[in-house]
Amino acid sequence: FSITQFVRNLGLEHLMDIFEREQITLRVLVEMGHKELKEIGINAYGHREKLIKGVERLI
């Protein structure tokens, strides 16, 4: 299971460039909250919320 699959499953594949540029893996994403996601350029609250909720389902 990769970050690419995870992001695609959430319908947020347009954010993949950010994850690749910042070298974010699923392991790193698990540790990130709204503040960190915003810092790397994910400005939409809804997108950040989707990512965080998606990660919570993985754990």
Rank of each mutant, 00 (worst) to 15 (best):
S2H: 09
E36I: 04
R57C: 12
G54S: 08
R27Y: 09
E22A: 10
L15P: 00
H47T: 15
K38G: 06
S2N: 13
G46W: 15
E22C: 10
E39W: 07
I42M: 04
E13R: 07
I40Y: 04
N9H: 12
R57Y: 10
K50F: 06
R8L: 09
V28S: 12
L58S: 04
E49W: 08
F6T: 01
E31Y: 15
Q5C: 15
L37S: 00
G46H: 15
L15S: 01
L51W: 02
K35Q: 10
R48W: 06
K38Q: 12
E39Q: 13
V7I: 14
N9W: 13
K50W: 07
R48Y: 05
E13M: 11
K35F: 07
M32F: 07
D17V: 14
D17L: 11
E22V: 05
M16T: 10
R57P: 03
H47S: 13
H34R: 04
Y45D: 06
Q23V: 07
G33V: 03
G46I: 15
G11Q: 08
F6S: 00
I3H: 01
L12F: 04
H14N: 09
L29R: 02
I52P: 01
G46T: 14
G41E: 02
I24S: 01
N43R: 11
R8Q: 11
R48H: 02
F1A: 09
E39T: 09
D17S: 13
L51S: 00
V30C: 13
M16N: 08
I42A: 02
M16Q: 09
L58A: 06
L37G: 01
L37Y: 05
I3N: 00
R27D: 11
F1E: 09
L51N: 01
V55L: 11
G11N: 08
L15M: 05
E56A: 14
V28P: 01
T4Y: 14
H47Q: 14
I59W: 09
Y45K: 10
F1Y: 11
A44T: 11
I59D: 06
G11D: 07
H34P: 03
L15Y: 10
G46N: 14
F6V: 05
T4K: 13
H14G: 08
I24M: 07
R27S: 13
L26G: 02
E31A: 14
K50H: 06
I18N: 04
N43L: 15
V7P: 00
F1S: 10
M16L: 14
F19C: 03
E22G: 07
R8S: 11
